[in-house]
Amino acid sequence: MTGTTSIGIRVNGEDFEREVEDRLTLADFLRSELRLTGTHLGCEQGSCGACTVLLDGSAIRSCLVFASQLTGAEVTTVEGLANQADLHPLQSAFIKNDALQCGFCTPGFLLTAVEILNETDHADESTIREAISGNICRCTGYQGIVDAIVEVARSGSER
């Protein structure tokens, strides 16, 4: 068995203090400790992108980092994107452009897309295609996802 560490972490704007097992991944911490189950696990090998969250603003794979190393960090998950009533523009654009079917990959793509929009001002289709190529979707063939992100990038309405 491994040791434990106490951490203080801010998730979706809320502060949490927890004692965690050293080997607990951030993904499992979010899912089982905080019951934020919108962060999905498709491989736990770092290669599908389903578990993508924002860690201090950068999109990372939460199955590859340990929660115990994250004291002081700030994390955004899919649950932190929308206000109560209003969807994030990316969330609306995903629905409108048929960017999802089973929805399992969706949270990972959304957070990857948030990073793209934060980093590049006028991302075009090929930049976006490249930037999401680390995320796997088995249902859609990606076209709807690309279209949705392009649409939001064009409108410049990202927050």
């Binding site: 934020l36 189950t37 919108g38 962060t39 999905h40 998950t77 899919v78 649950e79 994107l81 929308a82 969807l87 969330q91 995903f94 629905i95 999802l100 929805g103 399992f104 969706t106 949270p107 959304l110």
Partner: peptide, 11 residues
């Protein structure tokens, strides 16, 4: 679809 984009799907 709205549940899914909000991360509220229950798999």
């Amino acid at each position: 679809a709205e549940e899914f984009v909000r991360g509220q799907g229950q798999y």
